[in-house]
Write a protein that binds this DNA or RNA. Structure first.
Length: 899
RNA sequence: GGGCGCGUAGCUCAGCGGGAGAGCACCUCCCUGACACGGAGGGGGUCACAGGUUCAAUCCCUGUCGCGCCCACCA
């Protein structure tokens, strides 16, 4: 059966993928003695479906894995998904809402069951989609961050870090997301620029009727919780007020005026209201001055008076308990409006200025976060960060591209305590139990906690487990070793940890990469991976970020349906340069599909011309210059491709393959081989070309398999280079010495240039392709005439030459000319050319060279250049000048002949 | 406010001390026995701007302008 004339990716992809998978092509082999190669997949959210960012990162990863596997490494690409606490809980809550239910009414246990049920039904989407892309993940090893094994790893880690004091409870301000009703970490907060106002509020000074201290604020609603006004001791006016007291308007509370350098005399009015329970800076000021810290906003960001009820005092013209009580239960922004109106009524509002500032929002919920005083679990990231920083400093871990190390260091050196508790239901429940008096017992399970409690109290007590779950990134941080069976001492753990490369986008360096480094170094005593390859983002053709709201999202699965997975993958490789975002549209994929098609058609040509792999073929035995030239070119391509992959230059890898297949193999080798494959050719030559062609096609298939696995495997199997589905495990090609390669290269280069020049002249002179012309060579050496003889058929065919002969006697009257080294090429084209045009063309060529020669000779006339530039550069310029001058002379002679 | 990156052919980008490259697009010609998702040829760039270093600068240094991203508690 011969190859179909069209490559139909949709038909072959599922069959090949299943073939690889069933044959164990993706499986690692812990028992082998090959050097391992490990990539841990960044576990996609279990709620996710494949988007362009996935397509990029997983194509890159699969390319690396397939390449290393072919190099003989025992490759493990560890698959799995992340339980994605907040995202997943939101998805299921939305489903419940559609059914008229909510999680609180169904209760925690039933809700969690429901999430598991959802996961069982819908959680496999992304893994199916990864298969479409061709990702060679070791599926039987698939893990989920809430698996029993991974949950055990989470508990083990939590208990250990708690024991070491690296995990602790603390009551301080957290970023509270009022929509999601949970604490979130600093990283989950994104600042958005909001056009708001700056309100200037007068606080009456106690004992000085009619005098005020004016504070400026962007958040008037928090003033109910003010417990001081801070001013700089250096402030020319307010400095003198330190130690005095002010009256908090509306509430009537007497608050101190404290001196603190936090207050900048240059900013605002120079005096700052201090609300310790609702502002991170104010919290610090409050600690320094031992201020009360009443909360006036609750978990829904609504006004609560619980903690200030006793402070309310009626002061005519300043404070009114009835007004304040009326605020209870109001949402924060409604309360703001009411408070501003009341202040205005009381003439305590000095002015309002327009003001733009950065307002922290929750990245999931999308509403402004509220700093809230709560007790949460924290991880002392400052301690854990040090070994990670050191490992990057000493090169034990390397970022590619290297500039990301700066970003990494900047963040890690100033890392803040990591809030790891979340007020959610879906996630790893914190392994902490509380006794009746609130004593905490941290243990791997309830029994162990009970035992601790018994020892503590001297009797059994009823314990209640902490209601909170852990930040999703806590379990992802253990991914590089929890997936290998840790805390069990599995063979895989010793073999595949540390991993080789971590591939990801810069957006999760802090979220995930840094956490894996910290937890890996601490728990395993070694780095989790050696190289961190950071790629860019996928954007649309115009360079805009893809987003649902912009409507510019491209679905990778649609691209795969339309153009095939190979086309998408090759496009991604070709566009993935270092440190650059990938601008991708359907048209780019369509273009690169052309390359896949080209390869397919080249293979069809090979097949039609009897190119079949031969087991006994020895590349060193070839005799034809064309064969040697092709093998030598293949060596170059192999070296380039290998070097590119080693350097994570996917663009250069793709380019090397593209050039070799299209410009070398198809454009020249296949074209030049045609006469040798035709009827009447020397059978020995035909046999050799068939062998070489088949051999090099095999090299091409192996070289390109990591990027375009499907089409290459299909061709590999079809031609019988190996058994079905065996290309995935075939050996990565290596350059082999080619006898007399440089001689073959000189000859082929000359022939290629000769054909090129003749084509160029004919085209520029508008000679119709249907009219072949003789090609006459003036000044050709015997060696060149020998070449012409050897390549006569090819030159005839590719240069549309009726014949190629040495120029004997006079120049034909009307002819076009071109110069190839010492040879002048003459095309007698009587009646077909415009002499004036030909003269102009030659003159233009000559003038270009004259300019070049002039520059070069000027340079050589510069004594400084000759004395200071390296010898070889001077030599190069001398040769350049000589070549230019000689060509000018020949072109001039050609012009003179035209008269 | 701090940091990072980027401004090279119409577009997307590579090159990063010794006479500017690729792919696509464009123009001309060609359905030549693998491929029109093709073949052949061609046009097109003071390498953002200004200084400096150097025999030599698109490439190194400084500054300016423009674009993008990250971080930051400035009321």
């Amino acid at each position: 059966m011969t190859l179909e004339s069209r490559f139909a990716p949709n038909e072959i992809e599922p069959r090949l993928y299943a073939g690889w998978e069933n044959a164990g092509g993706f499986a690692c082999d812990p028992g082998s003695n090959a050097q391992p190669f490990t990539i841990m997949i960044p576990p996609p959210n279990v709620t996710g479906s494949l988007h362009m960012g996935h397509a990029l990162t997983f194509t890159v990863q699969d390319t690396l894995v397939r390449w290393r596997r072919m190099q003989g490494r025992d490759a493990l690409w560890q698959p799995g998904t992340d339980h994605a606490g907040i995202a997943t809980q939101m998805v299921v809550e939305r489903l419940l809402a559609a059914e008229g239910m909510d999680r609180r009414s169904m209760g925690r246990e039933a809700f969690v069951d429901r999430v598991w049920q959802w996961k069982a039904e819908s959680g496999g989407t992304i893994t199916t989609q990864l298969r479409r892309l061709g990702a060679s993940l070791d599926w039987p090893r698939e893990r989920f961050t809430m698996d029993d094994g991974l949950s055990a790893a989470v508990k083990e880690t939590f208990v250990k870090l708690y024991g070491e004091g690296l995990i602790y409870r603390d009551r301080r301000l957290v970023n509270w997301d009022p929509k999601l009703q949970t604490a979130i970490s600093d990283l989950e907060v994104e600042n958005r620029e909001i056009k708001g106002s700056l309100w200037y509020i007068r606080y009456p000074i106690e004992g000085k009727p009619g005098r005020f201290i004016t504070v400026a604020t962007t958040r008037p609603e928090t003033m109910l919780g003010d417990t001081a006004v801070a001013v700089s001791p250096a402030h020319p006016v307010y400095g003198a007020l330190i130690g005095k007291r002010a009256v908090l308007p509306l509430v009537g509370r007497s608050i101190p005026i404290v001196g603190d350098d936090y207050a900048d005399p240059e900013k605002g009015t120079g005096a700052v209201k201090i609300t310790p329970a609702h502002d991170f800076n104010d919290f610090e000021v409050g600690r320094r001055h031992d201020l009360p810290m009443p909360s006036v906003l609750d978990r829904q960001a609504m006004v609560t008076l619980e903690e200030i009820e006793d402070d309310l005092k009626a002061i005519p013209g300043v404070a009114d308990p009835a007004f304040v009580r009326g605020l209870a239960g109001q949402a924060r922004f409604a309360a703001r409006a009411a408070i501003v109106a009341e202040l205005e009524r009381l003439e305590l509002l000095e002015k309002i200025e327009p003001h733009t500032n950065q307002v922290p929002h929750g990245d999931r919920g999308g509403v402004p976060v509220e700093p809230l005083l709560t007790t949460q679990w924290y991880c002392n990231a400052g301690v854990l960060a040090k070994p990670a920083i050191e490992a990057v400093e000493t090169g034990k871990m390397v970022f590619v591209p290297k500039q990301w190390e700066n970003t990494f260091f900047a963040w890690m050196r100033d890392i803040q305590p990591w809030c790891i508790s979340r007020q959610l239901w879906w996630g790893h429940r914190i392994p902490a139990w509380y006794g009746p008096d609130g004593t905490v017992f941290v243990a791997k399970d309830a029994d162990a906690a009970a035992a601790q409690a018994h020892a503590h109290y001297g009797r059994d007590e009823v314990l209640t487990q902490d209601e909170d779950v852990l930040d999703t990134w806590f379990s992802s941080g253990l991914w590089p070793f929890s997936t290998l069976g840790w805390p069990e001492k599995t063979p895989e753990l010793g073999r595949y940890y540390p991993g080789d490369v971590l591939v990801t986008g810069f957006d999760i360096i802090f979220f995930w990469v840094a956490r894996m480094m910290m937890l890996g170094l601490h728990m395993m005593g070694d780095v989790p991976f050696r190289t961190i390859y950071i790629h860019g983002l996928v954007r649309d053709e115009k360079g805009q970020k893809m987003s649902k709201s912009k409507g510019n999202v491209i679905d990778p699965l649609e691209l795969i349906d339309t153009y095939g997975a190979d086309a998408l993958r090759f496009t991604i490789c070709a566009l993935t340069g270092p440190g650059r975002d990938v601008k991708l549209g359907a048209s780019r994929v369509e273009n690169y599909r052309g390359f896949v098609t080209k390869l397919w058609n080249a293979a069809r040509f090979c097949e039609m011309n009897g190119m079949r792999p031969e087991a006994g073929f020895d590349p060193a035995s070839v005799r034809l210059p064309l064969s040697r030239w092709l093998l030598d070119s293949a060596n170059t391509a192999i070296s380039e491709a290998t070097a590119a992959l080693e350097a994570y230059r996917f663009d250069e890898y793709a380019a090397a393959g593209y050039r070799f297949v299209w410009n070398t193999f198809c454009d020249w080798f296949l074209e030049l081989s045609k006469p040798l494959l035709a009827d009447g050719a020397d059978p020995a030559d035909t046999a050799e070309i068939r062998q070489v062609g088949a051999h090099v096609l095999g090299l091409i298939l192996r070289l390109l398999h990591p990027a375009i696995p499907y089409v290459t495997e299909e061709l590999w199997d079809h031609f019988g280079y190996g058994e079905a589905f065996s290309l995935i495990g075939a050996a990565w090609p290596e350059p082999v010495p080619v006898p007399d390669a440089s001689q073959a290269r000189v000859e082929l280069d000359w022939v290629v240039r000769l054909i090129g020049l003749v084509r160029s002249v004919r085209n520029e002179m508008n000679v119709p392709p249907s009219k072949p012309s003789p090609v006459l060579l003036q000044g050709a050496s015997a060696e060149m005439l020998g070449r012409v003889d050897r390549w006569m058929d090819a030159i005839r065919r590719l240069a549309r030459a009726s014949d190629v002969l040495p120029l004997g006697g006079d120049m034909p009257k009307e002819s076009a000319q071109a110069v190839l080294e010492e040879v002048t090429i003459v095309l007698p084209l009587e009646g077909l050319i415009d002499i004036a045009a030909e003269r102009a063309r030659l003159a233009k060529e000559r003038d270009k060279l004259v300019v070049d020669a002039k520059k070069t000779s000027q340079k050589l006339g510069n004594a400084d250049f000759v004395s200071r530039a390296p010898e070889e550069v001077v030599m190069e310029n001398r040769e350049r000048l000589a070549a230019a001058e000689s060509e000018i002379a020949r072109l001039q002679a050609a012009l003179d002949r035209l008269g």
